[in-house]
Computed example of a mutant assay.
Amino acid sequence: MVSSMTSPAEIDAGTPEDAAAAEVENALGRLIERGYKFVHPRDAQGEIISVVGVRVHGTVVDVVRLDAEDEVTAMRMPADEVDVLAPTTLLWRREGHIREVVDALLELPDSSASQSLSRGATGRGCWVSGPRGRAKWLRATA
Rank of each mutant, 00 (worst) to 15 (best):
L138E: 12
T59H: 01
D62E: 15
R76V: 07
G58E: 09
R55K: 13
R139I: 08
S3Y: 04
V2W: 10
Q45T: 04
V63N: 10
E71N: 11
S116I: 02
A9I: 14
T122V: 12
D18V: 05
R94D: 05
W127F: 15
G53P: 12
Y36M: 12
S114N: 01
L108F: 05
V84H: 01
D12V: 08
A68P: 02
V101N: 04
E100W: 03
R139E: 05
T88Q: 15
G96P: 01
R30M: 03
V63Y: 08
L31N: 09
E100F: 09
T15H: 07
S118A: 12
V63M: 11
S4G: 06
D18W: 01
A135M: 05
R93T: 08
T141G: 00
V84Q: 01
R76N: 11
W137C: 05
S114L: 00
M5W: 14
L105D: 07
V39K: 10
I32V: 09
E95A: 07
A9G: 13
H57G: 10
A140W: 06
W127D: 04
I32S: 07
S112R: 00
V39P: 10
K136F: 01
Q115I: 04
L108R: 06
I49E: 15
W92L: 11
D62A: 11
A113H: 08
T141I: 00
R34D: 15
E69Q: 14
D12Q: 12
A74M: 10
I98P: 10
E10L: 06
I98H: 03
I49R: 12
S112T: 10
W127M: 07
D62R: 14
L31K: 06
T141S: 09
G96N: 05
A19M: 02
A19C: 03
M1K: 13
R93E: 00
G120N: 03
V84L: 06
I49C: 03
S3R: 08
A20C: 09
A20L: 10
V101L: 08
S129I: 02
M5I: 13
D62Q: 14
L117R: 10
R76Q: 13
A9V: 14
S3E: 14
V24S: 15
T122K: 08
R30F: 03
A104R: 09
D43F: 04
G46E: 07
V39M: 13
V24T: 15
L90F: 03
L106K: 06
I48Y: 00
S114A: 02
E100C: 07
S3Q: 14
A113M: 12
W92G: 04
P41R: 00
R76E: 06
A68N: 12
A44D: 13
I98Q: 09
V52N: 04
R76K: 11
E81F: 07
M1A: 14
Q45C: 00
I98C: 02
T73S: 14
P16S: 05
E10A: 14
S4E: 10
V72R: 09
V84T: 06
T15Q: 09
G53Y: 04
E81N: 02
W137L: 06
N26G: 15
A20G: 05
P16C: 06
V24Y: 10
E25P: 07
V82G: 01
I32F: 07
H40R: 14
P78I: 07
W137G: 02
L106P: 03
S7F: 08
V64C: 05
A79M: 11
A27Q: 15
D103R: 13
D18A: 10
E69D: 15
